[in-house]
């Protein structure tokens, strides 16, 4: 899989560059010509009001939906994302809001669901448990009492951590998280935000979809705002403030002169 990487691509190109993505459902145009960059080692927050198209865009990148037209540049090279399998082959993993964990299975079983290791036809539990333990330890997810406990017995933040660990275990390069803190309390939210920073520090590209501007400003390096199916602005988080993000979210434009213009570069 990594054979072709040594070839010198455009070095400072973002990990994933989306160009001209259109998507409609029947008569409804859900996304108009979206351009989005997701660089490695950065947390990009995708903001927008309900119905702005955040979820559709996410699902197009994750291979769940087929865009009508789109150009994907992965590490500078053209790539096709036609199915969830294509996306995960590239190294794109998505943590959905519902986390997609089976309550009756334990942490290890959930982390390896669909990609179990076997030896001589039987499940290789020892090897899976070791790998899952290493991944959790490297993410410093240490509050779980045992990695053999069923997911049903975990707190909301722990469940989120397990879902994230599941996503990063597969040498993923881009992790997309849908509303990771929506259902969490204060302590749990802090735990998850720390986890997101740790992913970034590992050099992963992270895209966080969030309504919560506190979280966005706490964790994001870059901010992209959607409004009625268009990506109206994206740029360095430092060039935004709360006020301008809210204006972009609600009107599609910033009222104040001198705010960041739509689309950097």
């Amino acid at each position: 899989m990594t054979a072709a990487v040594a070839e010198p691509g455009p070095t400072d190109a973002p990990l994933l560059r989306v160009r001209g993505l259109d998507k409609h459902f029947g008569p409804v145009q859900a996304l108009y010509h979206v351009d989005l960059d997701l660089p490695s080692g950065k947390v990009t927050a995708l903001c927008g009001d309900n119905g702005a198209g955040k979820s559709v865009l996410t699902k197009c990148i994750a291979g769940i939906y087929q865009p009508d037209h789109a150009e994907f540049l992965w590490e500078g090279h053209p790539a096709h994302i036609r199915s969830a399998r294509d996306a995960s082959r590239l190294g794109i993993e998505t943590v959905y809001q519902d986390l997609a964990l089976a309550d009756n299975l334990d942490i290890v079983q959930n982390m390896f669901l669909g990609r179990e290791r076997t030896s001589r036809g039987l499940l290789d539990e020892d090897s899976m448990e070791r790998a899952a333990g290493e991944t959790l330890a490297s993410l410093r997810v240490t509050t779980v009492k045992s990695i053999r406990q069923p997911v049903a017995s975990l707190s909301g933040g722990q469940r989120q951590s397990v879902a994230v660990a599941k996503a990063v275990m597969w040498n993923s390069k881009l992790v997309i998280m849908d509303e990771p803190t929506a259902a969490l309390g204060v302590v749990q939210t802090k735990m998850v935000l720390d986890l997101i920073r740790r992913l970034r520090d590992r050099g992963l590209a992270v895209m966080v979809i969030s309504h919560n501007l506190n979280d966005v400003f706490e964790v994001a390096d870059r901010i992209a705002v959607m409004y009625l199916g268009r990506l109206v602005v994206q740029g360095d988080a430092a060039t935004f403030d709360r006020q301008s993000v809210v204006e972009y979210m609600t009107t599609g434009a910033a009222g104040r002169p001198g705010g960041p213009r739509a689309k950097e570069s």
């Binding site: 997609a100 089976a102 009756n104 299975l105 079983q109 669901l113 990609r115 179990e116 499940l123």
Partner: peptide, 17 residues
């Protein structure tokens, strides 16, 4: 493993491929 996973959360199992 898949039998139990389907019993616990079919949607998650589907998304796991």
């Amino acid at each position: 493993r898949y039998v139990y996973a389907i019993g616990g959360n079919p949607e998650a199992t589907r998304r796991a491929g």
